[in-house]
Amino acid sequence: MNTLPDSSELRDEIISKTKEWIRKSVIGLNLCPFAKPTFQSNTIRYVISSAKNKKSLLSELETELKQLVSTDPLTTETTLLIHPFVLTDFLDQNDFLDDTDVLLDRLDLEGTIQIANFHPQFQFADKSINDITNFVGRSPYPILHLLREDSISRIVDSHPNIDSIYENNRKTLQKLGHEGWQKLGLKFSERN
């Protein structure tokens, strides 16, 4: 993997902002009711990509996919591949998901790993850019979230009403509003 071109201070800042987002938004607003145990057990692997183009990012993604499937879930349950220097436009990242699907297929990982995306400009196709419900997918930096399919299946099977999560998130964010989101004090990347 390439080394991050900036200082360890920048690396620490990126991880700190990402963890703060998880604590205040993902867990604090209960946007993902399954995130807290993984966060508290410290089984999230945070990887900061130094990639500056899609080809390099895809190569780093391949490395991280192989790393995740070869690691015990008790050590690493999930991976956040944070890529602050490439795909800084949400539509570019969204298009890149086609490449990640091809990679999963090539590595024979379809049905084993799922990739979700988060981005400072995250926007649902049917929502305006400023719609507060977009914030369910907004993160301080562009992120590819690598999830184990068997973990997702266990969660879905154990949750009484998995479909209610989307509706609860929508209601939570609408009640919070933009002013409430601002009060969370989350700092998003200035590059985006």
Rank of each mutant, 00 (worst) to 15 (best):
M1E: 15
T3G: 13
D6P: 00
S7T: 15
S7A: 13
E9T: 15
L10G: 01
D12T: 13
I15H: 02
S16Y: 06
K17M: 05
K17A: 08
T18F: 05
T18P: 01
K19D: 07
I22A: 01
R23M: 07
S25Q: 12
S25K: 04
V26M: 05
V26C: 04
I27P: 01
L29R: 04
N30C: 03
N30S: 05
N30T: 08
N30W: 00
L31T: 08
F34V: 11
A35F: 02
A35D: 03
A35V: 08
P37W: 11
P37V: 14
P37D: 14
F39E: 15
F39H: 13
N42H: 13
T43I: 09
I44C: 05
I48M: 10
A51T: 04
A51I: 02
K52I: 08
N53W: 09
K54D: 12
K55S: 14
S56V: 00
S56W: 06
E60M: 03
T63C: 02
V69D: 03
S70A: 12
S70V: 00
T71W: 03
T71F: 09
P73C: 02
L74H: 06
T76H: 02
E77L: 01
T78R: 01
L80P: 01
L81D: 03
I82P: 02
I82T: 01
H83L: 04
F85K: 07
F85L: 15
V86G: 02
V86H: 05
V86T: 12
L87E: 07
T88E: 09
T88S: 06
D89Y: 00
F90V: 06
D92K: 11
D92F: 00
N94A: 06
F96I: 10
D98A: 14
D98C: 06
D99P: 01
T100P: 11
V102S: 11
L103M: 09
L104E: 12
L104W: 08
T112G: 07
I113P: 12
I113Q: 10
Q114A: 13
I115G: 07
A116N: 06
F118P: 05
P120T: 12
Q121G: 08
Q121H: 13
Q121C: 04
F122I: 08
D126K: 09
K127A: 05
N130C: 04
N130K: 11
D131A: 13
T133S: 09
T133R: 13
N134Y: 08
N134Q: 10
F135L: 09
G137M: 11
G137D: 09
R138L: 08
R138V: 10
S139M: 07
P140V: 08
Y141G: 01
Y141M: 03
P142N: 10
I143G: 00
L147C: 08
R148K: 13
I152E: 03
S153Y: 02
S153F: 06
R154Y: 07
V156P: 01
S158T: 13
P160S: 15
S164Q: 14
I165Q: 03
E167G: 00
N168G: 03
N169F: 04
R170K: 15
K171S: 14
G177E: 08
H178Y: 05
E179K: 12
E179V: 10
W181C: 01
K183N: 15
L184W: 10
L184V: 08
L184T: 10
L184E: 04
L186T: 04
F188I: 10
S189D: 15
N192D: 11
